[in-house]
């Protein structure tokens, strides 16, 4: 009985470490890396999200959620990223942290969704 409990605890710890490493944020990500992280986070949180989404659509939808974030900052960063991405304009003072904070906050959305799913069943 004790052995089984031990295995379960250590397995849980091990899985936690692996998961933590998988979603560990790079120390000094570029704007492109930050958006890649956001993309991964979105795919994990919303597996049904259609592949054809754009950043503006995603930000507009997430704004309606209860995430306590600086949306002005996020929208400004998206705009600067688009200027760089599609307009070839160098981005200056792009706030990478705003995008990373959004990516991390999606975990909360994922957790809340799981809780509400359990409660509904």
């Amino acid at each position: 009985m004790l052995l089984v409990a031990n295995v379960a605890i250590y397995l849980g710890l091990l899985l936690g470490i692996i998961r933590g490493r998988r979603f560990r944020l790079p120390s000094n990500p570029t704007v492109e890396e930050a958006f890649k992280i956001l993309e991964k986070s979105l795919t994990r949180t919303f597996p049904d999200l259609p592949a054809g989404y754009t950043w503006k659509e995603v930000v507009n939808r997430l704004k309606a959620s209860n995430l306590d974030l600086d949306w002005y900052e996020i929208e400004d960063t998206v705009r600067k990223y688009e200027e760089f991405r599609y307009g070839g304009i160098d981005y200056k003072n792009a706030n990478v942290d705003a995008i990373l904070r959004l990516a991390v906050s999606l975990k909360k959305v994922e957790k809340d969704a799981r809780i509400s799913q359990i409660q509904s069943t």
Partner: peptide, 9 residues
């Protein structure tokens, strides 16, 4: 089609 085709991001 717009839902399926991935735009450049």
């Amino acid at each position: 089609v717009l839902d399926v085709v991935k735009p450049p991001r």
